[in-house]
Each structure stands twice: as C-alpha cells, then as structure tokens.
Design a protein around this nucleic acid. Structure first.
Length: 154
DNA sequence: GACGATAGCCCTT
DNA sequence: AAGGGCTATCGTC
C-alpha cells in the first residue's frame, strides 16, 4: 500500500490518499506528518485539479469490495451524482430500491473515499445533513462546486 | 435490541 | 420560525 499527501487551500487541510493498484481511502488530516512523495499518483493529480475547479469527475479505480453489499450499493449510487448537484438521503434510498433512509446515512458515514465518492452531495430534505469529516468540509465542497458547476463542461 | 449523516407530523414557545 | 417528542423504516454492530 502506498500513499500521497496533498494540501487543499479550500479546506485548509492535508489529504492523505492510500492506494495500491486501486484507490483505497482518502482522509483529511490537519498536519503533514509524513514525507512528501516524489511521484504523485494519478488520483492525487486529479484531486489537485478538483480543488482548482478544473476536474469535475474522477477516473480513478476504487476498491470498496470489503464493504457490505448494501454499503457498496449506496456508494456506487452516490458516485453517479453529478458535479454541483445534490440528492436527498430519501431520493438516494429510493434510487437503490430501498426505504432504509437512515441506513443510507449510516452507509455514507462509512465512505472510505470522500470527494471521489461524493457523499457531500447527499443532503437532508430540509437542511444539509451530516458529514463524518466535519460539516464545514461538506459546506465548502458544495460551495466550491456551485462556483464551478457552470464554468464549462460537466 | 439499540442506534443513526432521515422524514413527517403534531405540538409548544 | 425554531425546536422537541413520537413514529416509521431498516441495515449494522
């Protein structure tokens, strides 16, 4: 398993990206306690593009095979939400043929690959809902996407 | 069984 | 308008 660290000005946080052949996890960290990598993964480059408002969808291969079937379904469905758009927990549940609205929230809370799996685009019907990494991150990501959503292509 | 990143309804300030 | 209680719903632990 290898990892990269990048810095996000938008969030004022470092982001750790763990991967082997496929992307394994993304986590937000306050301090860069690790050495800088010489070579960045494709995913790290994509993420940097994302924070510049240039990248609007990700091509990186992900590995979430160790999660339960339900969780995988929720996260795969979340991946289909387009840049700058939002969907409610209940809409997401319905789209996978379930009425387990709260279970959807739980599954999203376990998302090991935030941003690439855009769980920040899932909101409550009346309000913003939650975010494991901290609600301020969710708000910033959504504002950032609103800002760039209509800049050019999708 | 209890607990949620829900939702809807029905109160009370 | 905002917040609390109650209930339905269902996948995890």
């Amino acid at each position: 398993m290898r990892f990269d660290i990048i810095y996000s000005e938008l969030l004022d946080l470092y982001i750790k990206i763990e991967y082997d052949a496929r992307l394994h996890s993304i986590s937000f960290i306050k301090q860069k306690n690790y050495l800088k990598q010489k070579e960045k993964s494709a995913c790290a480059i994509e993420l940097e593009g994302y924070f510049e408002g240039k990248i609007k969808h990700f091509l990186s291969d992900i590995d979430i095979s160790y999660l339960s079937p339900f969780e995988q379904k929720v996260l795969e469905e979340t991946r289909k939400i387009k840049y700058g758009r939002t969907v409610t927990y209940s809409e997401l549940a319905r789209s996978i043929g379930s009425s387990a609205i709260r279970a959807v929230g739980n599954a999203l809370g376990k998302n090991p690959i935030p941003i690439i799996i855009p769980c920040h685009r899932v909101v409550a019907k009346n309000g913003i809902g939650g975010y494991s990494g901290g609600i301020d991150i969710k708000i910033r990501l959504l504002e950032h996407e609103r800002k760039y959503a209509f800049a050019n292509n999708l």
